[in-house]
């Protein structure tokens, strides 16, 4: 398979002059970047640098809270997300995985079947098939296939995180947003999930927020470095780790020299 060079692929997400405010506190200040199709786009940066806020702006979660204000433009496939008439249709195209696994208080089966059900899939055979496919892709099927009717919240942390990935996949998303997914997950499971992500790249665009710089190095095609709400720089991951950086602060952060 001949892969199109990254920067010649169409833009999946275009971010222009994005600012995010909570009250008068600036969480993200005037950021512009674009994310290509079938790319894993890494975002690294210390705490409070605005990474989570960035993800929330993409699927318009700011509308669900009163204090978050978003300025600027985020476009999905060239179309401003604010101009999507139906925000629910927008969100169903974007899968989200949270830092701490949130198994919904439903059975394992229902966790994965919820999104298809919301889309109107009623047929039991079809649902079974979706559940099995998504759980398999998230490398969880073998562990849970005999107890699909037990509660999702009874799984171990690492299993729950794979369950949330399966749930995100059940949306058949174009874009997958991952927010520090490995915080509550052991190293072995983390590696398994990373392998899953590498496969998923073939089908979707992945935005990977991580506080493990090595994870960005292993997975991301390009990486952006956020610091205190600023986009310090964005570049090919290999370049950044070869110290071909524009800003000294990037190297400092990558090498762990940060106050």
């Amino acid at each position: 398979m001949v892969e199109t060079p990254l920067l010649e692929r169409p833009k999946k997400l275009t971010v222009e002059n994005l600012s995010i405010l909570y009250g008068d506190q600036v969480a993200l200040n005037d950021i512009s970047l674009d994310i290509r199709e079938n790319e894993i786009f890494g975002i690294i940066g210390p705490a409070n640098s605005g990474k989570t806020s960035f993800l929330r702006a993409i699927n318009r979660m700011d509308e669900m809270s009163d204090d978050m204000l978003v300025r600027g433009k985020v476009a999905l496939d060239g179309c401003d997300v604010r101009s999507w008439r139906n925000v629910y249709a927008l969100r169903s195209r974007i899968g989200v995985v949270f830092p701490l696994p949130v198994g919904l208080p439903l059975t394992i089966y229902e966790n994965v079947a919820l999104s298809p059900r919301l889309r109107g899939v009623r047929n039991k055979v079809e649902l079974d098939e979706i559940v099995e496919r998504c759980l398999s892709r998230a490398a969880l099927w073998d562990e849970v296939k005999d107890r699909l009717d037990s509660l999702g919240s009874l799984l171990s942390g690492g299993q729950q995180q794979r369950l949330t990935i399966a749930r995100a996949l059940s949306q058949e998303p174009d874009v997958l947003l991952l927010d520090e997914f490995s915080i509550a997950v052991d190293p072995v499971t983390t590696m398994r999930i990373e392998d899953v992500l590498k496969e998923l790249r073939e089908e979707m665009t992945i935005v990977l927020v991580t506080n493990l710089v090595q994870q960005a190095r292993r997975l991301a095609d390009r990486t952006a470095f956020f610091l205190g709400g600023e986009l310090v720089e964005v570049g090919m991951t290999e370049d950044l780790f070869r110290r071909q950086v524009k800003d000294q602060r990037t190297t400092d952060y990558l090498e762990g020299r940060f106050g």
Partner: peptide, 21 residues
């Protein structure tokens, strides 16, 4: 609140979230 946010991010409306979760 995390349950609501997880459900909303699946594309569920507020009412779907209220009724199911």
């Amino acid at each position: 609140q995390a349950f609501r946010e997880a459900s909303w991010s699946l594309g569920a409306t507020r009412w779907q979230t209220i009724r199911r979760i």
